[in-house]
Design a binder for these strands. Structure first.
Lengths: 252, 252
DNA sequence: ATTACTAATACACGAGTAA
DNA sequence: TTTACTCGTGTATTAGTAA
């Protein structure tokens, strides 16, 4: 009830741990590097024990993978860790750069099956109508993201978004998700009333993006498998507006 | 002895407090905005009490100015606070952008008096010779920074730098400082062996930069008061090399 | 509704130690 | 040297309350 809301991706990371992760990234880039707890502790103004604990925390959070050897340890920032860092980076970009926009690129791909099943379930469908203001076409447009875009999708975490709550079905629980308002651009044509729906409990290394809209996007923009598309995520800062709090009020 | 080294400007800020500062900036920009502890606590995944304490901490650190009223409080991020945020931002830029360079602009201004006095003091002069590798010309070139550059100088905090330790004079203590390797560009000409010397205990809203070099820069680059100059700070990440630790070893 | 105090508690930290 | 354990201590946190 009063737990972290769905869109608070940045808040679920201990700031101290994130600082440690940032320093790991700064010393060795995001690929594997040797890190000593003493050096890390020095930079974090903490003891070697604390530095050690930070790395353990990061590992159990899935942000780094470690290889502890006798004279140190090899640390590699995972995709989830990079996503967390990029989310933080995006926050700062929004602070200091006036025109921050997140544009993800990819190509249309098949797979309207699974998405169609989920979004038509009443527990989700009701929330779409209430919170997005429309009944989505019963099917998703899946976009295969480019490698660059897969990395950058971590920046979505700081963006204004509509939370979709988890709900209990007859036999199982259906997880929470987040809907990001996007503009779909294909072949110069723009389609505005689109949302990217991202499950909250997801593998952050996912290379696909699922889009929903009032209409069938394949028809509206004359899309076929393999067509290149651009997904522009609305740059509004999450912090600018009531956001999830308003939805909670609405739901209560 | 084992306290925080001079260049660890980022480490002297509690990461949790910085996160709070970032969120204040995100909701209201850097100018005055109304913030409620409840909303801030929500976003930080903490209680309202903790949010309140964070704001008090930020205030006593000089990072925000507050105006507590009956139904909330008006918070304004100070220049020092913005500098701290920019330093963090610069760290993330260095993580994700390959070519980050910090170029500060300004104009040559008078005032070789005060700087000359300080840099010729033996306690400093010795360190310059040992750590910078040259005896500075006995005088500083002062640069009046542009408004934009005054804001951006906070980014220097993350840059590789040479620490200058505090020392005890006969009657007073002389404070620690940090020397940043820079390239001075004037009228197309470049002069490489220059260092910007920044006192560690400084008013972060300082709009001047003091430069030292082996030669008299006014002669070397034919500079007069008011001439426009560019100060390019070496983009090397502080984290890439031993840095202050090596100096400690050297000094021991 | 706010902010912020005080008091009880939990948790994070660093010292010491073992591997 | 490393990493990381346990353990005592201290600080940060939250609950409750006042203004």
């Amino acid at each position: 009830m009063s737990d972290a809301t769905a869109t608070d991706a940045a808040a679920d990371v201990d700031p101290a741990a994130l600082a440690a992760l940032k320093h790991v990234g700064l010393v060795g880039g995001l690929s594997e590097t040797k890190v000593s707890c003493a050096a890390l502790g020095d930079r974090l103004d903490a003891s070697t024990q604390t530095a050690s604990r930070r790395l353990q925390t990061l590992e159990s959070a899935g942000y780094v993978e470690r290889d502890v050897v006798s004279d140190g340890q090899w640390v590699r920032v995972t995709d989830a860790g990079e996503a967390a860092l990029r989310a933080e980076y995006a926050d700062y970009r929004r602070l200091f750069e006036s025109d921050v926009e997140l544009s993800l690129r990819g190509s249309v791909t098949g797979g309207m099956g699974e998405g169609r099943h989920y979004i038509t379930l009443p527990g989700y469908a009701e929330q779409f109508r209430e919170r997005l203001g429309y009944d989505p076409f019963p099917g998703t447009l899946n976009v295969d993201l480019t490698e660059e875009s897969v990395r950058r999708r971590g920046e979505m975490a700081g963006i204004d978004a509509v939370p979709i709550d988890a709900w209990e079905g007859e036999d199982r629980t259906y997880g929470a998700a987040t809907c990001y308002g996007v503009t779909l651009v294909a072949d110069g044509e723009r389609y505005e009333a689109v949302h990217a729906i991202v499950p909250d409990r997801t593998h952050h290394d996912d290379d696909q993006l699922e889009l929903i809209a009032p209409d069938r996007l394949r028809d509206a923009l004359d899309l076929a498998d393999g067509d290149a598309v651009e997904v522009r995520v609305e740059p509004t800062s999450r912090a600018d507006e009531p956001g999830s709090a308003a939805v909670e009020t609405e739901a209560a």
